[in-house]
Design a protein around this nucleic acid. Structure first.
Lengths: 97, 97
DNA sequence: TCAACCAATCGAAGAATTCAAATATATAAA
DNA sequence: TTTATATATTTGAATTCTTCGATTGGTTGA
């Protein structure tokens, strides 16, 4: 029961950073996917920082990393986002549980 | 245009803490409102910590503090929550912004 | 195999967050 | 006015987050 809150916390934390939001938005605008280099351009951070943020987003389940030859492709997981919003709605709607 | 992201960041940050989520949930389960003492019991933190968290929630626009005699009453602002979710949906739906 | 490229990991510095003890403020009651 | 109660604010220490330079690990093509 506290697990749901933990999950919400993790995703909310991942969303609580402008750079990560920019990354997600970039992916959203490109049909749900983006490469690391494109992400790096959009946030104007050093490559290790981008990699770090990507890891946080992936651990929260908001994106998925997939190798495509030499490059990586990151895919926005809209299901996670929807789950997040549904759970938030549920927890804060006044229902017990 | 980056303002929306800043706003999203602020609210997401406020939501990114289990104790604050518990506080919000408590309020939601009590018809949208709660007193400081009730909140304190529910999260098991010292009073100054509770006060601090409440400030963060208030600054994010997620709750509103109202004085009722000697006590305070905190009201969950569901509009903010709805706005947050709508904006998140908009930003991450793939529409150019 | 070697050089080139992309992304992850390591290590460290600086910034932000978290929490609690002590203190302050405000209201109500005596 | 004095006392008691409820909440806010300040302060400081510990922790966590963000960022970056340097390095490492794979993958591709020569």
């Amino acid at each position: 029961m506290a697990e749901q809150l933990k999950q919400l916390e993790k995703i909310a934390k991942a969303l609580g950073d402008v750079n990560r939001l920019k990354m997600l938005r970039l992916m959203a605008q490109h049909g749900g996917t983006g490469a690391c280099s494109a992400v790096q351009e959009c946030v104007n951070l050093a490559q290790p920082s981008v990699s770090h943020h990507i890891k946080i987003l992936a651990e929260a389940g908001l994106i998925e990393a997939e190798k495509e030859g030499r490059n990586y492709k990151y895919t926005l997981k809209r299901e996670t986002l929807r789950m997040f919003m549904d759970e938030l709605q549920l927890q804060l709607s006044g229902e017990k549980g």
